[in-house]
Amino acid sequence: MIRVLLADDDVMIRAGVRAILTTDPDIEVIAEAGDGREAIELALAYRPDVALLDIRMPRLDGLAAGAEIIRAAPAIAVAILTTFGDDAYLARALDDGIRGFLLKSGDPRELIAGVHAVAGGGAYLAPKMAARVISELRSTGLSRATAARAKVKALTDRERDVLTLLGAGLSNTQIANRLGLVEGTIKGHVSAILTRLDLRNRVQAAILAHEAGLITE
């Protein structure tokens, strides 16, 4: 069971998101918060698997609250619930260790998939947001794509396979199953990838995989 803390200052939004999440029998919303400070307090009290935080909340926004939760309880996976126009905050989120950006207006199946992905140790960007972010990164010139491909060349074939699946949002367990390896081996590969490519976290690795052209779907 994936235990979720849901934080949004709009009661109707909270009710809608909760209704979507609870259609999945493997997800349970264990606590709800109306602002960033309350979200931190409840996260530390209930220790959910996932803290799903609205990006815009009173007292403390979702990014700041998420950063505090990660510092105090690194085992809690933090994902941001946002609207399509808020992807400018992505760089800040990457630095803070936030694992996912989920769209309020997206396909309900994407919301559920995102919660599963971050709970399983993966990273998740809503497909529309990922496409826009990658497009904007590439619009700065071919140099980013060229640099990404050059970085990826430093990886072994197996590490490149792992990076591709990581970029697709799979967790370590899912990658292990896909490649027929044990999860501990995948953790070692992920650690090596992050170190070798000088990346802070899995979301940065996912973006690099897109920039390098590893993700074709």
Rank of each mutant, 00 (worst) to 15 (best):
A51Y: 09
L53T: 09
D54S: 04
D54Y: 06
D54M: 02
R56A: 10
R56W: 07
R59C: 01
L60R: 15
D61T: 10
A64S: 15
A65T: 08
G66C: 04
G66P: 04
E68D: 14
I69L: 02
I70E: 08
A72N: 10
A72F: 03
A73Y: 11
A75E: 14
I76C: 01
I76V: 14
A77D: 07
A77H: 06
V78H: 04
I80G: 05
T82W: 01
T82Q: 02
T83N: 12
G85H: 11
G85E: 13
G85K: 12
A88E: 15
A88W: 14
Y89A: 12
Y89M: 12
Y89T: 04
L90N: 02
L90M: 13
L90S: 07
A91N: 10
A91D: 14
R92T: 12
A93M: 10
A93W: 06
L94C: 14
L94G: 04
D95P: 00
D96R: 13
D96A: 15
G97S: 11
I98C: 05
I98L: 08
I98H: 08
R99E: 11
R99D: 08
R99N: 07
G100Y: 01
G100M: 01
G100A: 11
G100Q: 05
F101A: 01
F101E: 00
L102V: 12
L102M: 13
L103Q: 06
L103C: 07
S105A: 14
S105Y: 00
G106S: 09
D107P: 00
P108D: 02
P108R: 01
P108Y: 01
R109Y: 01
R109C: 00
R109D: 12
E110I: 08
L111T: 10
L111N: 05
A113K: 13
A113T: 10
A113D: 13
G114H: 00
G114S: 03
V115L: 04
V115F: 05
V115C: 02
H116D: 00
A117C: 05
V118G: 00
V118N: 03
G120T: 11
G121A: 09
G122A: 11
G122P: 07
G122F: 02
A123K: 01
Y124E: 00
Y124I: 00
L125K: 10
L125P: 07
A126N: 12
P127V: 03
K128M: 12
K128N: 11
M129Q: 10
A130L: 13
A130N: 08
A131G: 13
V133W: 11
V133Q: 12
I134Y: 06
I134E: 08
I134P: 02
E136G: 10
L137W: 11
L137S: 06
L137T: 06
S139F: 01
L142A: 07
L142M: 03
S143D: 12
S143E: 13
A145F: 00
T146R: 15
T146V: 14
T146I: 15
A147T: 10
R149C: 02
A150F: 05
A150N: 05
A150S: 05
V152L: 09
V152E: 05
K153H: 09
A154E: 15
A154K: 15
L155V: 05
L155R: 03
L155A: 08
L155K: 05
R160E: 12
R160Y: 03
R160M: 08
T164C: 11
T164R: 15
L165F: 14
L166T: 15
L166D: 11
G169R: 04
L170G: 09
L170Q: 14
